[in-house]
Write a protein that binds this DNA or RNA. Structure first.
Lengths: 346, 346
DNA sequence: TTTGGGATGGGTATCGTTATCCATCGCGGA
DNA sequence: TCCGCGATGGATAACGATACCCATCCCAAA
């Protein structure tokens, strides 16, 4: 490969001739393959270091591994995804793997599908899909040919691994907390369903249904109020504006995510109301920054770093050890109470 | 390529035999190359659609283009980066290019270098590096073989393109604004220099120096107070804690970035002080969410989407049209005044 | 009718690496 | 001395696509 400045990239042949061995020998050293003497290994390694050789991942892709994990995130605006990614990186970096991220778009199955295709075309060794809205059959199609871990979906699959938190427990914690504080008019901001069918596989569906169930269990069915926008600041803002316009307005908002909760805070402030004096707000995710934010948010904590790390481990198991049975890893969330929730105004 | 479920991926040969033409012909159609009749194009396209063929990017990488732009972000925690990326995506998607993101780490030249290497090894057609701390020589080495656009560095290069905002103007706007409000004890949160040498190429250096200059111009040199941590929530929080502990404490904080400003808000709140009653806070970047946040932040606006879009255009010019001369694109920032700044307490 | 040349389609070497063979060497046991 | 076998290193055929070059074909001009 000749680069535009006329210099060639250092290839395995360069290393081979420099060390006066065959390219096969070099390849064996690189792959830690069987049939290399200690002397050979040392000689080749010296040549590699001297020439600054790095394997060409794109060439490797033609026959072997790329040592690349592809990550599909809906977008990169959510710090909780960053927590997840930190966990993943920590796990796979040691094994020499590199994560590459593509944006899948929010609530758009088509663009999500294209993102996955882009990774498959680039021959990644494993795919990590975060909170997809894609049909399960589509995910399984990919998973059949590339090791796949899906985060945040509740349907069971025999071909991909799942990492998730128990959203039913989490939502229950949040709603019970608000009820215990004395709230009755508790509203929920959810996410619009994409496509025609509502799936119980989606975490936002479970959070919303659990909210409804817990409300009903406490005789508050008449106060159920759900506005479905999206789990983003903008979504939380829009949903909360709509909720605050109702009469009587809710005294508490259980936002589907921390990002949505931030939007809710903005809308409440804009309406001239105080948190938690007039309206309490609880979020979900408890990304690391949630504790820092200057209005400290009550949130359902799920450990993103652990989830990301587990996803990495599961992928490496499939890639390196060849596991094919599906694994499901679930974490139990807890509630972290901060200053955004308080008893309702008298 | 046989996948684990035993099904082969559809290759160019499959398309060729299905359409009863040569692989060369298919390749020509794919690349829009010269020498294809209309009939041939239609026939091949039909076969492509029928078989659901997608070119194997990894195989393409061996001889041609990968239609991939590699993006190096310090991390994905900053929503301003998301704005930039949206602009980039908008520009390159139309040309059939896909962006892949890798994290370069904050203030760590080594890990930044590894991130760039990872992209080069994967044979991306162009590289977009956001706010690197790497030595310029290292960036230029890469840029000599792969089209490169660097965002947020002020040194001039003959081999890569630069996209930046005028940080001197921006910092001036923020500090002048605070001074005009009547503040004298204005502090600044900056970013730690990585490595031994302080470079005027880094935007945080320019913002800090401009802050010092403007302070001096108004006879406020004695009140200059800079704490260098990092342009993150955590960094802004730590820096502000330290600043608030001083006697007398500052009445205004010019944070080096919006993220740092959020951290500052947290620290101020934690100290039992009010914004802007006791302390004013101004940020830098004005990411889209800054307007939404429930305490609306005064910030220096630089249009991230435009910058990302421009970066995409510059890369495509180099990749497709073969431009080799270096271009420098600079936007002039403006100040957006919101509710986080006010006159100092009497 | 011949010729020249543009338009079109295809053969094939090649990119860098891996994995499957195959060849050689040295050594212990018969 | 000869045989067999484990250990080691290498030759080589892929992987999927591209791009250079060449072979036709057809038509217009001479």
């Amino acid at each position: 490969m000749v680069t535009r400045d006329g210099r060639r990239r250092v290839t395995i042949s360069d290393v081979a001739s420099h060390a006066q061995v065959s390219t096969t020998a070099v390849s064996k050293v690189l792959r830690n393959a069987y049939g290399v003497s200690e002397a050979m290994r040392a000689k080749v390694q010296a040549a590699i270091d001297e020439l600054g050789y790095r394997p060409h991942a794109a060439a490797r892709a033609m026959r072997g591994r790329t040592f690349t994990i592809g990550v599909v995130l809906p977008h990169i605006r959510n710090p909780f995804f960053a927590d997840i990614l930190d966990g993943l990186d920590e796990q796979i970096a040691g094994a020499g793997y590199q994560a590459i991220i593509v944006q899948g778009g929010t609530m758009d199955p088509d663009s999500e599908g294209r993102a996955i295709d882009a990774l498959v075309d680039r021959q990644v060794d494993g795919i990590f899909v975060v909170a997809p809205v894609l049909a399960r059959s589509r995910l399984e199609e990919t998973a059949r040919s590339t090791p796949t871990v899906v985060l945040g979906r509740h349907d069971r699959s025999a071909v991909y691994d799942s990492v998730l938190d128990d959203d039913e427990v989490g939502a229950e914690l949040a709603v019970e907390h608000l009820i215990a504080l004395g709230h009755r008019r508790i509203a929920h901001t959810s996410q619009k369903d994409s496509g025609p069918s509502r799936s119980v596989a989606w975490l936002h569906t479970i959070r919303a249904r659990t909210y409804e169930r817990v409300m009903a269990e406490h005789g508050l069915a008449e106060h159920v109020a759900v506005v479905a926008t999206s789990y983003t600041e903008e979504g939380g803002y829009q949903a909360t504006r709509e909720l605050l316009a109702r009469t009587p307005r809710p005294t508490a908002i259980f936002a589907g995510s921390d990002q949505a909760a931030y939007g809710a805070l903005a809308a409440i402030h804009e309406a001239g109301l105080a948190v938690p004096g007039d309206v309490s707000v609880a979020g979900y995710d408890n990304a690391r920054v949630t504790a820092l934010a200057h209005i400290s948010l009550t949130s359902v904590d799920q450990d993103g770093a652990i989830m990301g790390k587990t996803a990495g481990r599961l992928l490496l198991e499939r890639i390196i050890e060849g596991r094919t049975s599906a694994v499901r890893f679930s974490v139990t969330p807890t509630l972290v109470t901060r200053r955004s929730t308080a008893p309702p105004p008298a």
